[in-house]
Design a binder for these strands. Structure first.
Lengths: 338, 338
DNA sequence: GACTGGCACTCGAGCAGTATGACTGCCAGA
DNA sequence: TCTGGCAGTCATACTGCTCGAGTGCCAGTC
């Protein structure tokens, strides 16, 4: 494809993202110095339309980019816009104030939505990719226990365990010690293996309690692989001037379905690898008029989970990609320090 | 005020809530058996308008209730609609499946928004009104600690503590024991008092570490009195037919400001005491076209926090109040059982 | 005195017809 | 290969109009 046609496509996308209105050949030569007349541009636009990169909403209107056009724009024409030094500084200081993991996640989602003016999505660090830091058992009156699993990312899972009989503090102490010896420093995915045979160390009358507790641990490890997601900045969906406004209902509904969100993230990517899904490239029906920019985050080259933003296909891809990547990097660093 | 005028107001509210359209005198006599002619109703409506309970959007339209009208409706005319037995059963089974406090809160918010078709707001149990169940300290490599506070409601707060030097397991064990002796079973509000003089039990060289940890505990107890809120069902804001749609942006923005939400809840009320704030009765600017139904929840007569729903002033008050109260009761029960 | 039926009046919603202007496509000429 | 010009298309905005829902008022009835 010739250089100028690409320049025309880039100009169309730029203008359309800014004005939200179909852009005509005359406006294009006025706003960009393309060095040729509007008639020439018309010919190029005709060719671009032929190839499916742009389309006209109706005969006497300008052109708007198609999903395929945005795809070409993102792939070929556009480099990620890096954050400025002050912006990076601001991100860092804001995130550094977080007191715990919940706080980190909430601040991240606020940051992303404010930087990109889009809806932000942040997945909690995956348990499956985390390491057990500590297991705690707390007596909670009568025959109940509180089981607490702490991951190296700061993520905490808790469960109440109902036992048939109450148990002694000595027993709890013993079990706690053995659990931590077996599990500390292990990947959560290896927890089931490490617990095999653990109850053999206990007296016969203690084994039912031990087994109940182990079962709860396994259940937590397994069911919590259904990951948690934080959503923020939904008010951006309703920004005035958005043609998106009409579709805001279905989109909000989709965002409430966390299952959908997880499908949206797809496979957790390696840290720093940006993924852009444009319009129909999204498998989720309600979001086919939206674009999603995601990136894996984590410490080192180990991905912990995914974060990203969601907005109308007409969005500032360069800026969004830059913001998402910058935030993901800092979050990765912070979780490493935990 | 005469009986019939109240009946007319009630009918107007009922119809308007259902149809979302100004209701005229003729439609009123058709749909309700008021026993008088439309001319009489017109006189009553005229009087109601005079008194500010209803108003006409324009000359040749029907009337719609004013905030004052809704207020009278809620105060005088309407009793809370109790949930049906199957509904109560469904609430119970759904909430009983929750595995931990986060799960309870998330399920509650889903339940409320689905039952009322409005935006649901649920406040986490207030730390200030909770009791310490357990304090845990976990070594987290080099000179870092993880501090974990567990409340009797199942609420967990965690903080990372940076120490100057690393500390021994023996020291940690000692400190953990003393902390739990001092704090277990105490109200969080009493924690500061209970920690006075605790560091005197330690050797001089250990005291800096102890003091750092105590400072972190105090900080957690104090700053976390800024409470957490879960929001759900925002897609209900965008339901078709809602005149609310135009204002959805500002409302969504307001809902993202958790400070605003907390102001919305105001003083935590005693369990079971319903509060309804209609339109301008809300102090929050962006929500002056919305109504909020809140209720305190907790175990026994002790309020833990508040939950509620938010929707357009034109909402089904009786139904919403019933749903909110029913859900709050079960949540109170569940947290008592923890 | 309270209620009713009837009538004149008001005013927004909806519709058809028209003017406007932005944009394209094409063609002949540079 | 590019350009200027011209005819044709079509959505939008505006106007004037009709229609009907709804009110307010008044005289009459129970």
């Amino acid at each position: 494809m010739e250089e100028r046609k690409l320049a025309v496509l880039r100009a169309i996308v730029d203008d359309y993202v800014q004005t939200h209105e179909p852009v005509g050949s005359k406006a294009l030569v006025d706003r960009h110095s393309l060095g040729v007349s509007s008639a020439t541009i018309r010919n190029d636009m005709s060719a671009l339309e032929e190839d499916g990169y742009i389309s006209a909403p109706h005969t006497s209107a300008g052109r708007i980019p198609t999903d395929k056009g945005y795809r070409l724009f993102v792939d070929k024409l556009n480099s990620v816009k890096p954050m400025s030094a002050p912006e990076r500084k601001a991100i860092q200081t804001f995130l550094d104030q977080a007191v715990d993991l919940d706080d980190v996640m909430n601040r991240t989602v606020r940051l992303l939505s404010q930087l990109t003016k889009q809806v932000a999505l942040v997945q909690y660090p995956s348990l499956g990719r985390s390491v057990v830091r500590h297991v705690e058992l707390v007596n909670s009156g009568s025959s109940k226990l509180l089981l607490i699993l702490i991951a190296n990312t700061g993520r905490i899972e808790q469960r109440t365990v109902d036992l048939v009989h109450s148990v002694s503090e000595d027993f709890l102490h013993d079990l706690r010690t053995r659990l931590n010896v077996a599990l500390d420093g292990q990947l959560f995915t290896e927890v089931p293996d490490r617990l095999i045979g653990l109850s053999d160390n206990f007296q016969l009358d203690q084994r039912p309690a031990v087994n109940t507790i182990i079962a709860t641990i396994l259940d937590t490890v397994v069911t919590q692989s259904e990951e948690r997601v934080v959503v923020g900045g939904t008010s951006n969906l309703a920004r005035v001037g958005e043609d998106f406004t009409a579709t805001v209902g279905p989109v909000l509904e989709a965002l409430e379905e966390h299952v959908v969100l997880l499908r949206l993230f797809g496979e957790a990517a390696a840290p720093d690898s940006l993924t852009v899904r444009i319009g129909h490239e999204n498998s989720v029906e309600e979001l086919q008029r939206a674009s999603v920019v995601t990136v894996g985050y984590g410490s080192g080259d180990q991905a912990l989970a995914t974060m990203g933003i969601l907005g109308p296909t007409r969005m500032d891809y360069a800026g969004s990609m830059g913001a998402v990547r910058a935030v993901a990097r800092y979050v990765g660093q912070i979780l490493q320090d935990q």
